[in-house]
Amino acid sequence: MKLFSGTISTIEHALDYSSLKQKVISQNIANADTPNYKAKDVSFKEVFQQAVNGSLEANKSGSRHFDFKGRPSSAQGVVTKRNVSYNHNGNSVDLDKEMSDLATNQIYYNAMIERMSGKFSSLQNVIRGGK
């Protein structure tokens, strides 16, 4: 949804990132007792790169300049933490860290929802003519 500026679509991408992170954290918590389960995380760099590759277009003025359209990133930025084991059964889920990440992600999500609500309130104010 692109209204007047790219702000709403940027917030929409941020909410998609937060939703994906929520799913990954929930999977990690659900598998905290599963033997040999390796914790997963969402790489912001990968998600950001996907957003940049999908939305930026530019013309190169020199042969040494970088291309904006690159190779596709990994599957939605989800990475598995390998070579880490916190438990005796080979599991790499740290429940304290996962719960902390869950709280941090919830705060981030709420901030993005508030920002989106503010944008819609501004648009509603403009439509009503400032009344």
Score class of each variant (00 low, 15 high):
G54N: 13
V93N: 00
G54F: 02
S9E: 14
M112L: 12
G130K: 01
K40M: 14
G118N: 15
R115Y: 11
M99D: 09
Q106V: 09
D101E: 15
E12D: 14
N36A: 12
K23E: 14
G130T: 01
E98D: 11
S92A: 08
Y109M: 07
R82Q: 07
K21H: 11
Y17I: 03
D67Q: 10
V47H: 05
I127C: 05
L15M: 14
S100W: 05
I8Y: 15
N31K: 10
Y37W: 05
I29K: 03
Q27D: 15
L56R: 11
S85A: 13
L15G: 00
V24N: 08
V24Q: 00
G129S: 04
L3Y: 13
A39Q: 01
S74K: 14
D101Q: 15
F120H: 07
G62I: 10
E12A: 12
V52T: 10
T80S: 03
A75H: 12
S63R: 03
F44T: 05
G77H: 08
E114H: 06
S73R: 01
V47S: 03
K97N: 00
N83R: 08
M1D: 12
S92P: 09
G130I: 09
A39F: 06
Q106C: 01
S19G: 15
I8S: 11
I107Q: 09
V93S: 05
S26D: 07
N105C: 09
L20S: 10
S61C: 02
S121H: 06
F4V: 12
